[in-house]
Amino acid sequence: MNIIISNTEGIPIYEQIKEQIKAAIFSGDLKDGDLLPSIRQLAKDLQISVITTMRAYNDLEQEGFIVSVQGKGSYVKPKNPELIKEKKLLEIEEHLLAAINASKLVKLSQEELIDMLKFLIEEESND
């Protein structure tokens, strides 16, 4: 896993760490049960304060991405339903966006697109 911090983006450093660890989990770069770098090691490597890294890890733990074991370190939380859901939601969003963009090309109205979606959902449940 790589974490690259930018000081010019205007995004707080702890946010950048959070997002990049999440991205590594989604991409499969970090797998269930993988050990993350220790808070203090990461702070040292990135030349940032311990509190900044702690905040990123605390947020990730609260959001259910990682679990911290006292004295052992932080691990990627195994088989997290929330995490899978978030990943799926992203996928759905992507596909829906593709549908919206395609509908724009043929000048399909919003109502027609929604009707089409409803029709497909009904068809699916009738099967």
Binding site: S49, I51, T52
Partner: peptide, 20 residues
């Protein structure tokens, strides 16, 4: 690198807390 900052001015502490 600093986690905490303490500001001192004219012999008095004006802030002490996390840098963030």
């Amino acid at each position: 690198v600093a986690d905490f900052i303490t500001f001192i001015n004219k012999g008095e502490i004006v802030y002490s807390g996390t840098r963030e």
